[in-house]
Structure formats: C-alpha cells, structure tokens
C-alpha cells in the first residue's frame, strides 16, 4: 500500500511539477499513468520511490513516511520498489547477469558488493529472473551488445531481482519498436498477474493504455485529472486531457521533462552521495 497525501513539488528553477496529489496504490493493480508531456508523470514516479523528495505533502510506503525520512530509511524502502526506464539504463559495460545482480545490492553489505561476492542464492535468483524474461541465453553478454527490446527485458529482470512489491515503469516502451513493445508490455502484465506485483507505468499510446490498463490515472499540469478504471476513460476525457484548455495550460506546455535527478534533490545539492 502506497499513499500520497497532498503532495506538491516544484523544481529548483520554480517550475511546478506536482500540485496537491492524493493517491493510493493498493493491491496488485496494473495502473497506467497518462497525460501530456510535462504533466508530472515521471516526477510522480520518482516521488513514489523517494528519488525525488516532494516540497510538501506525505509519501507513505506501507507504514513508513518517506518524504522527510533520512536517506538511509528511504533507501531501505526503495528496495521493494523496482524501476524500469525509458532508456533502459543498464550499466552498459556490465553483463546482463551483472545488471540483474544490481537488483540485489540493496540487501548486500557494502564490502561484499564491492568485492562482487554475490551469494549463490543471489546468483540463482538473478539467473531465474533472466529466465523469466526470456533472456537467460544472453546472461554473459555485455548489456551494450543487446537490442533495445532485450535491454528492456534485462531491465525488468533487474527490477524483479529486488523481489519488489511494486514496479514503476517510466515510459518502458517509448524507445522500442512495435514488436518489442508488445513483448515488454505482455511481460509486465504477466508479472502483475502471475507474481502479484503491482505495476505502475506511464504510456503515451492510448491503444496500449486500453489494451493493458486496469486503472488509469491521468495527470494534467501536475494535478490528477482523472482516476478510475479504464472502462470509464472516455474519448471525451482523453481529448480534454491532451487538447483541452486549462488555466495554466501555457505554462504546462512550457515544462520540460523531468530534469536529471542529481539536481532536484530536496536539498538542491548536485550530489547523489549526499546522505
């Protein structure tokens, strides 16, 4: 159970990203986040795993409130939330298997991980998750030698290796061709159904939204515009969402995508090592 209470956020440059969001993600929903570029979808995901600390409001992961918690606490909670990225973000010079093992880092003591001493259990888990996404044959291949679709499947395996309760997938298919997109979405749906892991993903193509979504949350200019089952998402709503006027429409179009994380920490410090 993850809850957002009156969450608002703006970036250091003053751009408003989220305003007064109240949300609860529970159970094993397949939830799709939609909305125009700059509506705050990516920021919302990064608020959920604590990579972005909102300027105000509360973020509950289970019984822990993470928006003001020390970095160490947030990090421990973050282990239960896997993340899949638009540009895959595999560590390119590591093998597929090593990339999946990254998913185990959160549960490893520092010295063991520095020496790359993964336990047998972790290595088996990593291999099994690669098997699960159909990439076991590529385990020993360097990540940058894989195709986009293959990289994304390894990315999903990395998230699975965390044994997550929730997978956040930030535009997982927008860099993929139609066939790979389908494989990736089928995989995410299968994971949600069979493994009972909640999935929250943002998608740009409404066809895919109608195909895969259970619940839809639409964001517009940083606010929740629609929240309900996909059956209730009418053409009229989507038209208003993407083409309709709002008071601050001009400013929302001016918003860029989420800036690099290193600059929008709560502290405004450029460092990702800052505790």
């Amino acid at each position: 159970m993850i809850r957002l209470e009156q969450v608002s956020h703006q970036f250091a440059n003053g751009t408003r990203a989220l305003s007064d969001i109240n949300l609860a993600l529970s159970g094993q929903d397949f939830t799709v986040l939609i909305g125009p570029s700059g509506a705050g979808k990516s920021t919302l995901m990064r608020v959920l795993n604590g990579l972005v600390r909102p300027k105000s409001g509360k973020v509950w992961i289970g019984d822990t409130e993470i928006s003001r918690a020390p970095e160490r606490v947030v990090r421990l909670e973050r282990r239960r939330i896997g993340m899949v990225f638009q540009s895959f973000n595999l560590v390119k010079r590591l093998t597929a298997l090593e990339n999946v093992l990254l998913g185990r880092l959160g549960d490893m003591p520092g010295w063991r991980s520095t020496l790359r001493l993964y336990t047998k259990a972790d290595r088996s888990l990593a291999m099994n998750t690669l098997e699960r996404v159909g990439m076991a044959d590529f385990a020993w291949q360097r990540a940058d030698t894989l195709s986009g679709g293959q990289q994304q499947r390894v990315g999903i395996a990395r998230a699975l290796a965390q044994r997550p309760q929730l997978i956040l997938a930030d535009e997982p298919i927008s860099a993929l061709d139609p066939k790979s997109s389908e494989q990736v979405m089928e995989l995410l749906r299968d994971i949600q159904k069979r493994d009972g892991i909640a999935v929250l993903t943002n998608l740009h193509h409404l066809d895919a939204v109608r195909e895969y979504a259970g619940r839809v949350i639409a964001l517009k200019s940083g606010s929740v515009f629609f929240d309900g089952s996909v059956q209730r998402l009418t053409d009229e709503i989507t038209r208003d969402l993407y083409y309709g006027e709002t008071a601050d429409d001009s400013s929302s179009h001016a918003q860029s995508n989420v800036p690099a994380l290193s600059t929008d920490n709560q502290t405004g410090s450029p460092s990702f090592l800052l505790e």
């Binding site: 973050r78 990225f85 540009s87 010079r93 991980s113």
Partner: peptide
C-alpha cells in the same frame, strides 16, 4: 546519469552506486 539513477533505484547505498554505477563506466 541514467545508469546511476537505475543503480540508485535498486536501493543501493552511495558506496554501491560508486562501485557498481560509476566505476564500470
């Protein structure tokens, strides 16, 4: 920074981000 963010998102510690995200690069 994408590769770094991905390692961070696993719940890795700052040291682990260095050894597994920065170092290989």
């Amino acid at each position: 920074t994408g590769q770094i963010e991905a390692v961070q998102a696993t719940g890795a510690s700052p040291l682990q981000v260095l050894t597994h995200g920065v170092w290989p690069q």
